[in-house]
Amino acid sequence: MTLNAQASVPDTASDSQGMAIVARTQGQMVRRRFFRHRAALAGMILFGFVIILAFSSIGFAGIPGWWGKNYLDTGALTNQGRPTLSLIPEFLGGTGLHLGEHPFGQDDIGIDYFALTMRGAQQSITIAFVVGIVATFFGTIVGAVAGYFRGRLEAVLMRLTDVMITIPVLIIAAVVGRMMGDSGALVLGLFLGLVTWPTLSRLVRGEFLSLREKEFVEAARAIGTPPRRIIFRHILPNTIGVIIVSATLGIASAVLLESALSFLGLGIKPPDTSLGQLISEYRSAMVVRPWLFWWPGMFIIVIALSINFIGDGLRDAFDPRQTRVRA
């Protein structure tokens, strides 16, 4: 229901007719503002499409997909492995809309490049989400504990985050990648999450520091509410906006981090693959077979961009301050 419609209906519950102070839950407002953010909406649709495409086409975890080929079978090269995908309709001088045998082409040993790219996308998305979840979990806990209890615990935790911030993320991630690259996407994601949480913990700590002084927290403390309950029931729900937004942006940067590691040869190892690994493997093909380079790159950009837009929409939705004009 729109504001106007609601406002014109007299509020029978109170005697103050014609008021437009419409009670709306925080959730409703956030949702409304998010869906008004066109780029975020587009990002969400695009990202949903990529996920469905990547996971349904070649199948996942033993479930077969609808795309006939897989990312391991080699085959004979047709037309030097050029992509058969055509998007230009005939009346514009193209060959019409069709996928063809190998829409994204084939690599040098004849593996279907569409299947390979989809596998890469699956791995990259999986890693990014695992990183996002693990980092958000630890970042939130550390930030909350440090912000709420202050004192020595805070000092220790903050020095710990200082240490983690002095080490560039890529550096520590590279070391972790060297260690865990062979163990598959889930393990790699888990360990990368374990080294990327400090950014979030700083943010959460900041929020906790200001919220813990608020009246409602004082009140809860005064009536003897245990700290754990105050943290989880009273403060955390108020920081959820910050956490969700930075978790989203964290996932986007994890996509890029993973691909950079794999590009350096410190992430996912062959025969398994990821988007970054594909680019790394075919970087010298740029001149002769540019499609081997283009497709995975496009997918990285589309995934990262759409998640970034979603994050921006969430930020506007949770914190509309920036977008409003003040008197």
Partner: peptide
């Protein structure tokens, strides 16, 4: 009693009438 009206959707008549 009551609160001032919304400035987007003013009640008809005297704006103070609800109160």
């Amino acid at each position: 009693k009551g609160t001032p009206p919304s400035l987007i959707n003013l009640p008809t008549g005297c704006p103070f009438s609800p109160r």
